[in-house]
């Protein structure tokens, strides 16, 4: 579904990614783990076209095209979605208005009938309730005054409504209590349809117990150094990344 080929990238003058190669398969859940500063978030930002990250070499092939040549909004319209580690607060931009604008932009891009306001509100309410969110957040500013957990649920809400094909979740589990983690994980599981691809960045196994990954990739010093099945998490938990360094 997506091929990440030899990606080198820097932030400012610092080389962060030093040749990442990764193939994301359709319908599979890929997890990237790695120590702090390994380049996990930089990789997600490179895929979605964040202005901080300068890709100096390599390509990301998706639907036969190198997406690195596309602006961020086009990558999103093609079906790539990033759930941010720290979603920004945008006072004054109504949550529902924002999300409907995004949905209508996607529908327009794919020559589909645009969802009208009434239809959208109905759709949004269903997802808001499924995620255990307060319905008053529909009329609130985008992430404005939201707690950490509410922001993460809002990211999942956006994902469920926009129905992307490649879903990148950057530490979606950080700062979540048990109930929120469960609600977010259920949201992710609802999206699994055998076609969508997930790329999950995490430091902890607890979310993996809910979403059942297919592949674990370890990113260290800007490169994928190990790929394995879910059993790799146990090794990392018991021995740490340090042990892998010895292996490699």
């Amino acid at each position: 579904m997506m091929q990440i080929k030899n990606i080198h990238a820097k932030i400012g003058d610092n080389d962060i990614l030093k040749g990442v190669n990764l193939t994301l398969e359709a319908g599979k859940v890929h997890v990237i783990m790695g120590p702090n500063g390994a380049g996990k978030s930089t990789l997600t930002k490179a895929i979605v076209g964040h202005y901080d990250v300068k890709v100096t070499e390599g390509e990301v092939i998706y639907k036969g095209k190198d997406i690195l040549k596309m602006p961020p909004e086009e990558r999103a319209l093609e079906g790539i979605f990033l759930s941010f580690q720290n979603p920004v607060e945008v006072a004054g931009v109504n949550n529902a208005y924002f999300l409907r604008t995004a949905l209508n932009a996607k529908e327009k891009y794919h020559n589909q009938k645009e969802t009208n306001a009434a239809e959208f509100l109905k759709l949004m309410k269903v997802h808001v309730e499924q995620l255990g969110m307060n319905t008053d957040m529909i009329a609130r500013g985008l992430n404005d005054g939201f707690s950490g957990g509410e922001k993460k649920r809002n990211e999942i809400l956006q994902m469920e409504i926009l129905q992307p094909d490649v879903i990148i979740l950057d530490e979606i589990d950080s700062g979540l209590d048990i109930d929120a983690l469960k609600a977010v994980s259920e949201g992710i599981n609802r999206m699994k349809d055998g076609k969508k691809t997930f790329l999950v960045i995490t430091h902890y196994r607890r979310i993996l117990d809910y979403i059942h990954p297919d592949y674990i990739h370890v990113l260290q010093d800007g490169k994928i150094v190990k790929t394995g099945g879910p059993e790799l998490v146990d090794i990392l938990e018991s021995q740490g990344y340090h042990a892998l360094q010895k292996d490699t």
Binding site: E73, L77, P87, V93, F98, A105, L162
Partner: peptide, 18 residues
């Protein structure tokens, strides 16, 4: 602006929104 664009909204539209 980047956050808004990352949901498929064009840059000019994102600016207008803000």
């Amino acid at each position: 602006l980047f956050y808004i664009c990352s949901r498929g909204i064009e840059l000019e539209e994102a600016k207008k929104m803000l």
